[in-house]
Design a protein around this nucleic acid. Sequence first.
RNA 1: GCGCAGAUGGCGGAGUGGUCAAUCGCAUCUGACUGUAAAUCAGACGCCUUCGGGCUACGUAGGUUCAAAUCCUACUCUGCGCACCA
Length: 395
Amino acid sequence: MNNNDKTKELLTRGVDEIISLEDLEKKIKNGDKLRIKLGIDPTSPNIHLGRSIPLLKLRDFQLLGHKIVLIIGDFTGLIGDTSDKESERPMLSEETVKENLKTYIDQASKIIDMKEAEIHYNSKWLGELGYKEIGKQADVFSINDFISRDNIAKRLSEGKRVSLREVMYPLMQGYDSVVINADVEIGGTDQRFNILAGRDLQRLYGQEPQNIVMNPLIEGLDGRKMSSSYGNTINLFDTPNDMFGKLMTVADELIIKYFTMLTRVDLETIEGYKKDLADGTNPRDIKINLGRELVRMYHGEEEAESAVAYFVNTFTKKEIPTDVPEFKPASGDYNISSVLIESELVSSKGEVRRLLEQGGIKIDGEVISDASHTISAGPSGVILQKGKIHFLRII
RNA sequence: GCGCAGAUGGCGGAGUGGUCAAUCGCAUCUGACUGUAAAUCAGACGCCUUCGGGCUACGUAGGUUCAAAUCCUACUCUGCGCACCA
């Protein structure tokens, strides 16, 4: 690929909108080394595939020689951004944020080269601002702007609470851009308002406003936008089998979108897949490629192959997996209900009863429906199965 | 601060003295089917149970009643309105 093509892909792949495209193109063409900002709030311990989209874009920039500036929102995380939320987001405790922080860098470093990146914690500067300065910044914005945002307007009209603290969020995110002197900020379309605020603040402080590269949001497992609060995410640190399995349940219509935005498989190959799908290739086969590629990206080649094998064996061939965690009841009680509860496979006796009635419990492949059944684990143990995916070797 | 309305299960939201462990939707779990851990369909879905029932729950604390999610009182929280100078 020549430089022109690279730039073109940089500015279109997994990109929803760029403000301002013209200016950014000019700077790239000039060969400017740009400072590319991405803010991540440690609001959940996991980075999910939706959040990998901006990270991948960041890497695209990095590979072209630009400087990545990662802002860890240890301060903004406390306040809580509501721009992608339908309800008020609670303020997190410092402990939670710290907890989440630990794994963040690890996860992000799966995608970008951390050694080449700048990392900042915004508590460093946000914690020191006083009312005077905040007042000056706040004067740039109006409440009118804020409450005309869709989700805020919606909450207001529904009589839900909107706290004043939420209004502060865009100021903080915007000020980050000022402090690190960002040329470009990356973020999802849900971040539009916040990132635009950065431009206004940069002007206030006499800087040239940053350009904005917005990525589309991606659908999660249930077809709604991927978000931790919906519990429909695929996480970077999901186990290979989990990640692969989740990807296999993704709606067929999303295959190409996932390939385009979540991987860097070259666009020609993806075009090929698109054609295959149109020509009637079983979507499953393309999806297996998708799963393999994503597991490879985050867990490596070997894990990817074994995840494929696991899935085919367990779900297509309905075999019992070879690698099953072992469990030996410490109480010595091998009654079926007791084992299920002690192993935490099931959380209450009522649920055990239900599962037994509905045929959801199997031992070595045989449905067990008797609550008084005692498991007799031979020398090699027996396989206790709950539903389709939970296996335990009882020894 | 004053007035009005509200607070129900993981979420949304019915219920307004006994038949309410609480309609329904979402989420979840199981089964059937399937290329799939999807979709669809069916069932389940507080905890314990010797399957008779017992226990804990409808913002918090008291009270009335044979009996309260439902009535009363206080408190906490949320929304809406008022907060003028007479």
